[in-house]
Design a protein around this nucleic acid. Structure first.
Lengths: 189, 189, 189, 189
DNA sequence: TATGAATGAGCGTTCATTCAT
DNA sequence: TATGAATGAACGCTCATTCAT
């Protein structure tokens, strides 16, 4: 087996082990020790493949988000708030599943340096591009740039999820809150 | 000295010691061990006053934010975006000073349960109330409720600070980004 | 109410609270904090009534053992090993209920100084006296003194209970082991 | 150096450090912190080698007892009570040196489960085997099994040491008490 | 690449006991 | 006697990360 092959195989084993553990115990409880044990490799090997545990998290969560982006990229441009909302919901729900996941996403939403933009940071850019295109093409406000509009949508998504984790505001549904935001942001009187 | 007095005094000593250490080394480097040493109390005493280190952080950062709120509460209602921006800047800059501080604030921005809403969570509510009043009284859009408007301002504040910590967007000033957001949100064409 | 009365009442409240907690959670989990809370007194008060927590344990466990001694004191002198065994079983079973109880008993079986012989230590003396009388009166070996015989019975009791807590010897019943010991010790060929 | 070798060496360093500290301050005053400092290893390393402090104690005290067993294993079978007594005295004196040591021994004399029989528990078995062989070969009572005889010797040893720590019985020498027990147990008229 | 023992700073915790009021 | 805040010395533990082999 070629060296490159072995490397990829080990990396795959680590990712598979991690996914399996997350299915059972969620992201927060993931331990490097368990990952390497399930993958059948030594601890040091893990750090030969990932800079640190956070890099693994970035990969795993980023891959998940990219899956959602793949799906919505194939959609036709939403022609109203409801359609837009439906397109955004899957990733919102993913971010809501665990407070820890939300924290990781927030932490990685910006890159520490340009030369190491992580998977999650890339999904934010990709998400922004997709939404901006929609907003430019669809029947939404045109007084500000699609890029800025998309940035605002991102801000409201974060806000909606954050309030979901907040006991003080739980009474309102995530979807309804997001719909309210989109209406006010994209269709001001 | 009354019993209650003694308790309050000890608590004050702990908070003072913590503040002193933060002035020197910032929030992230704060160590419980150093706090109790400087306060001249036992470690057990610390945990009799604060559930954990995070609870102390909540108190300290919350107090700081409340200070800003005290100041802006006395201001006259802003009559334009610039005045509003000026009022919001101090707390924005505070949140920007240390990535760690921003993370703590995000973590505490929602309360886990109604019976233990922390200091930071309370400042969010107070901040929302102040801004909502301003937006209701000032010359801003009236097609949506002041409460919702204020919620949006909060969302954009988080967004602005988050992007400040992001290498991809550093080039734009925090203030300018916030101004853009406020204009688009509060004064849509 | 006379001062003496109040003192006794507080002491009784503490003992009652402790007994209640032990019924629920056993001896090992007993905490002074819980005792004073249930008794409705302050922590310091506890230490005005008991030198330390161990003194409370000594009282509680000693009282229990004295109860057994009261019962067997009324019995007729056992005329064989079986009857003797039956008389000894209740206290043996009590010592077996919790490893912690056994440890406390061992620790208190001797007194640190003559002027503070605790309740448990006294029960050992009382137990020795009762058993010695039986052995002197009953049909048991006479080549050594009843006091020494009784001391040996005590040693074998400890041994039997200790092995009860030992995974290596669990297979033999406590009662059978004790019967074997008594036969060999009191009725050598 | 092989991996296994390194592990053994670290373990040895920890044990050496502990022994050194015990020579100076005794068993009770042993602190994990001091052990790791003297051994020149990290605290985490300690807990990678020993489940807890008690496990270290078990090892240390067990090793000591095994030393005595090594010595008496080489002795010729005692032909009378006096010789037997001499053989038993060293370990008795070791158990007497510190109340704390005796407590640890009692606590570990039984194993919580078969799969984790500690060092001290093993020495009890080994001691029983050695003494049983002696009693089988020597001029002692034959009406009961050597195993049972040895068990009784063990019981009397515990009894003798326990009474040594007891103010009520201090006046009699440990050795004399043990001699009396052995005579009565092994040579009934 | 792979190994896996070792690192290490510090948090959280314990809880019987003391002492000033 | 009663109060209860404060004590305090360890222990246990965590667990991502490093480094010599």
């Amino acid at each position: 087996m070629a060296v490159q092959q072995r490397t990829l195989k080990t990396r795959a084993k680590l990712l598979e082990a991690a996914k399996g553990l997350i299915e059972t115990g969620g992201y927060e409880a993931l331990r490097v020790e368990d990952v390497v044990r399930d993958a059948g490799v030594a601890k040091g090997t893990f750090f030969a493949h990932f800079a640190d545990k956070d890099a693994l998290m970035d990969q795993l969560i980023g891959a998940e988000i990219n899956g959602f982006l793949d799906q919505i990229s194939e959609l036709a441009t939403p022609q109203n708030i409801d359609d837009l909302l439906e397109a955004l919901m899957p990733s919102l729900l993913f971010m809501c599943q665990e407070r820890f996941v939300f924290d990781v996403i927030l932490r990685h939403s910006g890159a520490a340096a340009n030369d190491k933009i992580g998977t999650i940071a890339q999904t934010f850019m990709r998400h922004g591009a997709v939404v901006a295109r929609w907003l430019a093409e669809g029947p939404f406000r045109k007084d500000i740039s699609p890029a800025l509009l998309a940035e605002g949508v991102g801000a409201f998504q974060i806000q909606a999820v954050a309030l979901k984790f907040c006991a003080m505001h739980n009474e309102v549904e995530l979807r309804e809150r997001m719909r309210t935001y989109l209406n006010a942001w994209l269709l001001p009187t």
